[in-house]
């Protein structure tokens, strides 16, 4: 039987949604699922992990070095646990991407990044070329399989479970060459582009930084994050951290509204997994309309104020 180890992700206080998604991927593989919580104090995180559907056991590894999720410190601990398992999973967040390859290398294993689908215990589908090609890969051999589930592909499991929680100790000397300093978070009320359920992006058609205020204004009405096409970023209308696309952020919101964006391939690859795509563009031939669920041809400077109005007071 498969023995699957899921590495919990958290912010020292709460179990992150990424862990719920990794548990879903573990269920698709099938087998006995253990969640490992590395923390300084695992209490509430371990309690939440124990309620994950399908999880039979939670182990907690509490030590001061685990206060921050540093790859150099977590990886040797994960690699030390790995031989007892057939699979080691950690969702492909920036933390998972940082930690899991380092653990795989220490365990002498290859790794499957961004698992979209489980074909068999050692066979998976994953995207390459920013999702323009989907490959099926096999992990040869018999050692533990290291894999990172791709967040957008897995629905979080529920929390009706009742797993046992067991403290564990690892006799390992951890390196001291890496020091955590601090986390700086943006101080605004707008949701984060990467995880927002609604995103409104502006393209070159918006025309200027000043005009981008129209995008921000509509975003605030809808509680949406703001994005931009590469063309808009290159033209200086928006900062590069708003860039959506192959070389920017790849996102999967429930609603994506593309304003004045023609739909270059490098942009489309960044929004392929969005729930509903709305395109507003004056050029009826713009490629964005080929992928948009709802298109509206017209002048964005007329449409956006009207749209705000319509959302507030439907006619």
């Amino acid at each position: 039987m498969n023995k699957i180890l899921v590495i919990a992700q958290h912010n020292s206080r709460e179990l992150s949604p990424a862990t719920y998604r990794a548990a879903a991927c573990a269920q698709a593989i099938g087998g006995e699922i253990t969640v490992a919580v590395f923390a300084e104090a695992a209490g509430p995180i371990a309690a939440a992990a124990a309620r994950l559907d399908g999880v039979s056991r939670v182990i907690t590894i509490e030590r001061p070095e685990n206060a921050h999720q540093l790859a150099a410190l977590l990886a040797p601990q994960i690699a030390a646990l790995a031989p007892d398992y057939t699979h080691v999973l950690m969702t492909s967040t920036t933390c998972g991407k940082d930690v899991l390859p380092r653990a795989a290398a220490l365990a002498g294993a290859a790794m499957v990044s961004d698992v979209m689908q489980v074909l068999g215990p050692r066979e998976f589908r994953r995207p390459i070329y920013a999702g323009n090609v989907i490959v099926s890969v096999r992990v040869p051999g018999t050692g533990p399989v290291f894999a990172s589930p791709r967040a957008a592909s897995w629905r979080p499991v529920g929390n009706g479970g009742e797993a046992a929680i067991e403290p564990a100790t690892l006799e390992l000397c951890l390196p001291t060459h890496t020091e955590y300093l601090r986390l700086e978070q943006e101080e605004n009320d707008r949701p984060d582009l990467q995880s927002a359920s609604r995103v409104i992006s502006g393209g070159r058609g918006v025309g200027s930084t000043e005009n981008f205020k129209l995008i921000y204004s509509l975003a605030d009405k809808l509680g949406a994050a703001v994005g931009a096409s590469r063309a808009a970023v290159d033209a200086g209308f928006a900062p590069s951290d708003l860039q959506v696309g192959q070389t920017g952020k790849i996102i999967a919101p429930e609603l994506y509204i593309a304003v004045g964006i023609s739909g270059a391939i490098q942009h489309l690859t960044g929004i392929k997994d969005a729930g509903t795509i709305v395109a507003i563009n004056k050029d009826p031939e713009a490629p964005i309309f080929e992928v948009a669920d709802i298109g509206l041809v017209g002048d964005l400077f007329k449409i956006l104020p009207e749209l705000e109005q319509e959302i507030e007071n439907p006619s």
Binding site: N11, L70, T93, T94, C95, T178, E179, Y180, L181, R182, L183, E184, Q185, E186, D192, Q194, S195
Partner: peptide, 9 residues
């Protein structure tokens, strides 16, 4: 990182 900007030394 997903949560913002993390500084390490």
């Amino acid at each position: 990182v997903d949560e913002g900007l993390e500084l390490i030394r």
